[in-house]
């Protein structure tokens, strides 16, 4: 026999950025422990539609933990009670029969609510636009093997580059800081010779843009690293601080 769960859900409902939000309580039953958390949400929505009600709006897309579209604050944790996963990879076997699950959107000044559980994360794009790239145009570049890169550097850059831009770090931070996100991109590019050329400018511009957009300061609580579904390391923040200070000293 397949194991199933009966659950009570307290879900944040909010019609728009300026509207007042509230918790709604729903019941779902016979949820297979093998279904994913978002499949459970699908079942809830199917139930609501069949009752003639509006479904709960939530962001999701690839459902395999890479696009960074899904969010959700589940029982007080970004991406819920499992480690190293996004909400879409969270499975119901992590919950108990009869449990009450509280589901909220990311809550941060940098991410205003659009509807229900959907927030606006375009601030992240704006930070990348401020300098999260190597300024090369298409064409006219050297052969890919012209510049050897030590394997440890390439691997470390890859680890930093694994960030999916979901925003869990901001949601987990009591200050609403985006430092882990910014530092991951700054680190990736600072570790590679291609990105080294603009490293100083990049660090300054991205940090300035982050501040402008209403993200808080970093006080090194480390909550971001704990909740990051991709295990982005706090050491990236140290590297960003070094890059930033070196750039400022040179000014």
């Amino acid at each position: 026999m397949e194991k199933t769960l009966n659950l009570t859900l307290k879900v944040w409902k909010q019609n728009g950025p300026r509207e007042k939000g509230r918790f709604e309580t729903y019941k779902v039953s016979n949820i297979s422990v093998d279904s994913s958390f978002l499949e459970m949400m699908d079942i809830l929505n199917e139930q609501l539609i069949n009752e003639g009600k509006e479904p709960v709006a939530f962001d999701h897309d690839c459902r395999e933990g890479i696009c960074g579209m899904c969010s959700l604050y589940i029982n007080g944790r970004p991406h819920g009670p499992d480690d190293d996963v996004t909400t879409c990879q969270l499975h119901m076997r992590k919950f108990k029969d009869g449990e009450t699950i509280i589901i909220e959107p990311w809550r941060s000044a940098g991410f205003p609510v659009i509807k229900d559980l959907i927030v606006d994360r375009t601030a992240f794009d704006k930070i990348i636009a401020a300098g999260g790239y190597v300024s090369v145009n298409t064409g006219g570049v050297p052969d890919a093997n012209a510049l050897p890169i030590p394997k440890p550097d390439a691997d470390e850059a890859m680890d930093a580059a694994s960030c999916i831009g979901c925003g869990a770090c901001v949601a987990a931070c009591k200050n609403g800081s985006a430092m882990l996100f910014v530092s991951a991109k700054v680190s990736q590019l600072a570790l590679l010779p291609q990105g080294r050329v603009e490293a100083a400018r990049r660090a300054k511009n991205m940090v300035a843009r982050m501040d402008e957009l209403g993200f808080g300061n970093c006080t090194n609580t480390g909550a971001c690293e704990v909740e990051c579904p991709k295990g982005i390391s706090l050491s990236n923040i140290s590297r960003l601080n070094r890059e930033f200070l070196t750039a400022k000293i040179k000014d």
């Binding site: 190597v134 570049v141 050297p142 890919a144 850059a157 990736q188």
Partner: peptide, 11 residues
Amino acid sequence: QCVAQGVPFAR
């Protein structure tokens, strides 16, 4: 092109 952009391919 991708290497020039800083894509961290395996090495």
